[in-house]
Amino acid sequence: MADRFIKMHGLGNDFVVIDARDAPVEMTRARARAIADRHTGIGCDQLVLLEPSSVADLKMRIFNADGGEVEACGNATRCVATLLGASAQIETAGGMLSVSRDDKQAHVAMGEPRFAWEQIPLAMPMATERMPVGWSGLEAPDAVNVGNPHIVFFVDNADAVDLGLIGPEIEVDPLFPQRVNVNIASVDRDNRLKLRVWERGAGLTQACGTGACATAVAAIRRKLVQSPVTVALPGGDLVIAWAPGEPIRMTGPATRVFDGETDWSRFG
């Protein structure tokens, strides 16, 4: 009997989704990496594994293209909301998420952002707003945990930064014991940000939902914008709403591209 999967994307950030709620699927780092390979596998930025949950409607596990399992992915969560087609609670390693879906878009309550240095986490105590660190001319970033760790740099022109060069260096800097997602943002106009993201374990992506959340929160904290914020990514726009003491709310599209069948044993 063939194993089924669904190919989806959220603003070009693409996923292989495996529904393992009825029949368990063993997922290892090597297997996830093999499935994600765009030349010899199915190809994706992240693999999403749906499993039963004892505390929510379902559990979502997320594996980056390098095979590493991560805590959260906003675009993947919107894809799952689209698949479910109804309001639901989703258990993740980054916390509990609430999702819903209307005729056009998916909505996700991502939980409250975390700012304490040990919650990011950082390797040493320091302020997480306008941090006293820098790399190759990028200085004074903000750090935010939105289920996974992000660092956000605000610059005059997000397109002028060679993120493909500096992103890998910052991702693995010893300051970030669990590595970090790197966000480069600029204020486009009132309540609109332009954003590019180097995603931990995946590289440059068309869109990053948690990156959009972290960047919007950091911009609101700095009073650069007001909620709700439109975040323009290479793959399209997300709308992020947040106020201190409240969960982050993300709204945006998700697309079911095709359904497929394979044999997971082919991938190790």
Rank of each mutant, 00 (worst) to 15 (best):
A140S: 06
S136C: 05
E112D: 11
P125D: 13
V144W: 02
W117F: 12
P125T: 10
G137C: 12
Q119S: 10
P113H: 06
Q119R: 11
G111A: 07
Q119I: 01
M124W: 08
P121M: 12
P125C: 13
V133W: 05
A127L: 12
G134N: 04
G137Q: 08
M110F: 08
E118V: 02
P121V: 04
E129T: 14
V144D: 03
W135R: 10
L138V: 13
W117T: 03
S136Y: 10
P113W: 02
I120P: 02
V133G: 01
A116I: 05
G111K: 04
A140L: 05
M131F: 10
D142Y: 02
R130Y: 09
P132I: 13
W117Y: 13
M126Y: 12
V133A: 05
D142L: 01
P132R: 11
R114S: 04
V108M: 10
A127F: 04
E118N: 12
A109R: 11
E139R: 08
P121G: 05
S136V: 02
E139M: 05
V133I: 14
A143R: 03
W135N: 05
T128L: 08
R130Q: 15
E129C: 14
W135C: 01
A123Q: 07
G137P: 02
H107F: 11
L122F: 13
M110A: 13
A143F: 05
S136W: 09
A116Y: 06
H107L: 12
P121I: 10
M131R: 14
W135H: 03
H107K: 01
A127S: 14
